[in-house]
């Protein structure tokens, strides 16, 4: 008699693709083992008991049996489906963005409880935040720190002198913001204004609860996004699919309103002067 070894895994579904007639191969990030691939048999059948529990971006408790090539999903019980990011194409795209980042940067089987927690909290926040854009940038800054690529925002990325507030030059190659002297030596310097610089510092150092009501002005959004995308692209050495998809979506959004009607639409909200709202969280910055 063969004994199958079973083990529990608390997982978040990052990616899935169809396999064979009715199976699906899932890429999941687990608290216990980091990124792993598991096969979910029969889940594409409409009567499958497991299917709804292992949709993309769900937080799920899994029972896995050791298989020949990969673990086999034997039971799945959803912990959180983050339903609010499923009724909004823009939020969903940001969820895909952070899942894609984790999938691209992680090696199989290197667990990090902090990464798991950040991923979980960020998916929840993507549903709750006034502006999912802010959550995506928060995730990028925090995640880059966890995997050892923390962008320098408080001291020059090149010569380590303390940085003054005000306009700054961001260089992905140098590893963050550089001082005015070093700015002349980098080839990929991106000028960011004081508001964008403050937002980057704010997101890097605050807890996630603080950012839920932060809404940025369009000009600030653009600079923050450009700096971080450049940084991610530099380390991945390729473009993310979610970024291309989002750009396509933004073109469509000029004619079609993408946000559910009952919710605030950050792209059209005027946050007033600067980049603040809801008690001005940015004002506590040095």
């Amino acid at each position: 008699m063969s004994r199958v070894r079973l083990q529990k895994a608390e997982a978040i579904v990052l990616k899935r693709h169809d396999y064979g007639e009715a199976d699906r191969i899932l890429t999941v990030y687990t608290r216990q083992q980091g990124k792993i691939t598991v096969i979910a048999k029969g889940v594409r059948r409409i009567a499958s008991r497991k299917a709804g529990h292992v949709e993309l971006f769900t937080h799920v408790q899994m029972m896995l049996a050791e298989g020949r090539n990969m673990d086999v999903l034997t039971q799945a019980e959803m912990i959180d489906a983050f339903p609010r990011l499923r009724d909004d194409l823009v939020r969903m795209t940001y969820a895909y963005h952070i899942a894609e980042l984790v999938d691209r940067f992680e090696q199989d089987g290197h667990p990090s409880p902090q990464t798991f927690q950040l991923l979980r909290d960020s998916l929840a926040a993507l549903g709750d935040a006034d502006d999912p854009f802010v959550v995506a940038r928060y995730f990028e800054l925090r995640y880059l720190s966890l995997i050892g690529y923390r962008p320098h925002l408080f001291e020059c990325a090149q010569c380590a002198t303390a940085l003054e507030p005000g306009g700054a030059v961001f260089s992905a190659e140098a590893g963050g913001v550089v001082c005015p002297a070093c700015a002349r030596t980098v080839s990929d310097g991106l000028r960011i204004d004081d508001a964008a610089f403050r937002v980057l510092r704010f997101l890097q150092t605050r807890e996630i609860g603080v950012i839920l009501h932060l809404v940025l002005q369009p000009g600030t959004r653009g600079q923050v996004e450009q700096a971080l995308h450049g940084f991610v692209r530099h380390h991945l050495e390729r473009e993310l699919r979610s970024v291309e998809f989002l750009n396509g979506l933004r073109r469509v959004a000029r004619t079609v309103d993408l946000a559910p009607s009952a919710r605030a639409r950050p792209d059209t909200v005027d946050a007033g002067a600067g980049a603040e709202r809801s008690g001005d969280p940015l004002s506590e910055l040095p």
């Binding site: 009567a47 008991r49 299917a51 709804g52 949709e55 959803m78 489906a81 339903p83």
Partner: peptide
């Protein structure tokens, strides 16, 4: 709910 399924096994999205 899927025909042949048990309510107790349904995920919350489907059940909702």
């Amino acid at each position: 709910l899927p025909v042949g399924g048990d309510i107790e096994y349904a995920d919350e999205v489907t059940l909702g």
